[in-house]
Nucleic acid binder design. Structure first.
Lengths: 229, 229
DNA sequence: TAAAGATAAGTTGTCAACAATATAGAGTTA
DNA sequence: TAACTCTATATTGTTGACAACTTATCTTTA
């Protein structure tokens, strides 16, 4: 299960780190429900730790936009709205377009081959079990390209700000779409553009890919649920 | 000096907040030099506070990318490099393009008039004293358009992640350019596009505006200094 | 009964001391 | 002299207690 990635430098040693990870997952999976209040004493008790490192963890969750804090009042898990989801999609459309462009310029042959292998792997998974591809596989692909941009600040923004938030929406809105085959084809096109080091094209394709995804999601939300109000 | 902006809701009440603000400015202005190590006991002593709220403030500075922390080792102010500056410009080119597009779609007439007034004010300032416009005025304009996008997540990303980092580079690289008149004209074009609610054009103009700025900065750095290595 | 004010309980913010880890320096050995 | 080890120091991570603030409850008054 542990892949032989060369330089995964070390493990997060501090308590705040591990608790932060656990809370991220708990929020994404809805174990701590969206919109619910977070009690520091209760949580600290539950984890068997003091309030110090817990507050440190909460700080990071706030930076990840998973919770909102008001001074002297406390922290709440963010509430999911259609508007926020659209905002995030628009930002992704913009930023991941840039990422694809820079990936086309900066990815090494080795990187690109690995990306190809991932695509291959996804093709297998789709035949067997679409759900994994939808849940995590798609995210894997996008994150790989973001890393491929070699833009450290961009990578940072995704890792810290957007990644878990995207997972949260995907998880809790239970997005299951008929777009999987189409999306997979689009992924292939993007990789082709990257292999030809055609940054402009890669940017265009990635932006359009995410735009299509957004429009699809908006449609789904309109049909299925009235989530916002 | 205090402008009558209607709903500046409240003041930051907690110690961590005020100390965070002070540290932001101290880092931006170079009072705490780039690359220097931060000693928690020393800083806490200096501010006359305990290490608790100081660490909270440091957490936020880390989220703003003004400092870097390693577990059990400590915090350092980020080091400025040409590569990082270019990365930030590329991100701005992408995100502020989106901001301009959404601003053209979402700004009210009142918003646009205020933006016009700001432009007018800047024209006066340029005649008298170019330096203010370069230091803060330009940032004011860009931030106003970001707010005008009404994209709360986008606004958040700038307020927390990018704003102070941009100020840091601008301050410490002492960017003084001959582009001020040209940049001012470009600002005018962008406002025109917004007034006509031409989102596509506004996006194009804003992206190109920042791209020009980036190219200018890269040229300056090549000529004047060998900052990176 | 409804509204306003006082009181009490609980939560968050802050502090100072303790534990665990990392760094610097002295001493030893090759 | 250079490299290594061990020790001492200092810094960071963590804890539990205290202070300040919010919120809910109860009492009082119109």
């Amino acid at each position: 299960m542990a892949e032989p990635l060369e330089n995964e430098p070390a493990i997060a040693s501090t308590i705040a780190d591990t608790v932060c990870s656990k809370l991220q997952n708990a929020i994404v999976e809805g174990i701590i429900p969206a919109g619910s209040k977070i009690s520091e004493p209760a949580l600290a008790n539950e984890f068997g730790i003091s309030r110090g490192p817990l507050r440190e963890a909460l700080s990071r969750l706030e930076a990840s936009n998973l919770i909102e804090r008001k001074p002297n009042v406390g922290a709440r898990v963010v509430t999911l709205t259609r508007e926020h989801l659209v905002e995030i999609y628009l930002i992704r459309e913009s930023l991941e377009g840039l990422a694809a462009r820079q990936a086309a310029e900066n990815m090494s042959d080795k990187d690109i081959n690995e990306l190809d292998a991932l695509l291959e792997k996804h093709q297998q998974q789709i035949k067997q079990d679409q759900s994994y591809y939808q849940k995590e596989g798609d995210m894997d692909f996008h994150f790989r390209i973001i890393k491929g941009s070699k833009n450290s600040h961009l990578i940072d923004m995704f890792s810290n700000d957007l990644y878990h938030l995207i997972r949260l929406y995907r998880y809790q809105f239970g997005m299951v779409s008929k777009r999987v085959p189409r999306a997979f084809v689009e992924h292939g096109q993007i990789v082709d553009a990257i292999r030809q080091h055609d940054g402009e094209l890669a940017q265009f394709l990635m932006s359009r890919h995410i735009r299509s995804s957004r429009i699809n999601v908006e449609k789904m939300l309109d049909e299925h649920l009235a989530l916002t109000d």
